[in-house]
């Protein structure tokens, strides 16, 4: 039994080994893009939305509402980033129930990539919001002594993001595979249903944590020195 789909090489493309993680990621990308194109191809304001478009609007507005609730302000770029993370992860986790489909999120490489993306996105959003020095100054808060701890915190939370998602999804897939061998009928179904719930929760947690980190980076700092300046 393979612990990660990275080891499954499906085919080679121009000398580059395309493993199951990348292939399944492409499948998910194609699926999401195709469905989006299909539903939003003839959008007209004077035509009432159909049920699929309404479903997409509910999803997008739900994500936007969650982001606004967490970050206290609306940002389209944050929606693009966090929303895509959530949709990708949740689609990947839900496709876990498809026989023979190894969810990309069950690969530590994928979760590491997602965590790295978050790690890169946090300073990018912070710098775009506060400026370079404004963002870097957050590592010195509340005092300069906290600089190494802040750096360690930044790295560890990326690692925790990656390991948490990978561990949950991989373990769910592994448990389902093991139970399929032990009790082939009832338990795998129950575990798969539990895995769907777990995958949904994990996607929500990953996206919410990413949004929280980015929101913390772009949040306006409290001006604690203002009374002193006044004095």
């Amino acid at each position: 039994m393979e612990l990660t789909p990275d080891s499954i090489i499906v085919f080679e493309l121009w000398g580059f080994a395309v493993n199951a993680t990348i292939l399944n990621t492409w499948i998910i990308m194609a699926l999401l893009t195709g469905v989006s194109m299909l539903i939003t191809r003839n959008l007209r304001p004077d035509v009432p939305p159909n049920r699929w478009r309404t479903m997409l609007e509910v999803i997008v507005l739900g994500i936007q509402g969650q982001i606004e609730e967490i970050s206290r302000h609306s940002s389209k770029y944050l929606l693009y980033f966090s929303g895509t993370l959530f949709i990708f992860i949740v689609t990947s986790n839900l496709l876990m129930v498809v026989p023979g489909f190894d969810p990309p999120t069950a690969s530590l490489s994928t979760t590491a990539a997602l965590a790295l993306s978050v790690l890169v996105a946090v300073p990018m959003f912070g710098i775009s919001s506060r400026g370079l020095w404004g963002y870097l100054r957050t590592y010195l808060e509340p005092t300069a002594i906290m600089l190494p701890f802040n750096i360690i915190s930044e790295i560890t939370r990326g690692i925790s993001l990656a390991i948490r998602l990978y561990g949950n999804v991989m373990s769910g897939a592994m448990i389902a595979a093991i139970l399929l061998g032990v009790a082939p009928f009832f338990f795998p179904v129950a575990m798969d249903m539990l895995g769907l719930l777990t995958g949904l929760v994990q996607a929500y947690i990953f996206a919410v944590l990413a949004t929280v980190y980015i929101s913390a980076a772009i949040a306006e700092p409290k001006n604690n020195n203002k009374p002193k300046e006044n004095q």
């Binding site: 580059f16 993680t21 990348i22 990308m29 490489s109 990539a113 997602l114 790295l116 993306s117």
Partner: peptide, 10 residues
């Protein structure tokens, strides 16, 4: 390599 590819994919 997969990590880089997945970042690109993302």
């Amino acid at each position: 390599i997969t990590v880089i590819a997945q970042i690109a994919n993302l």
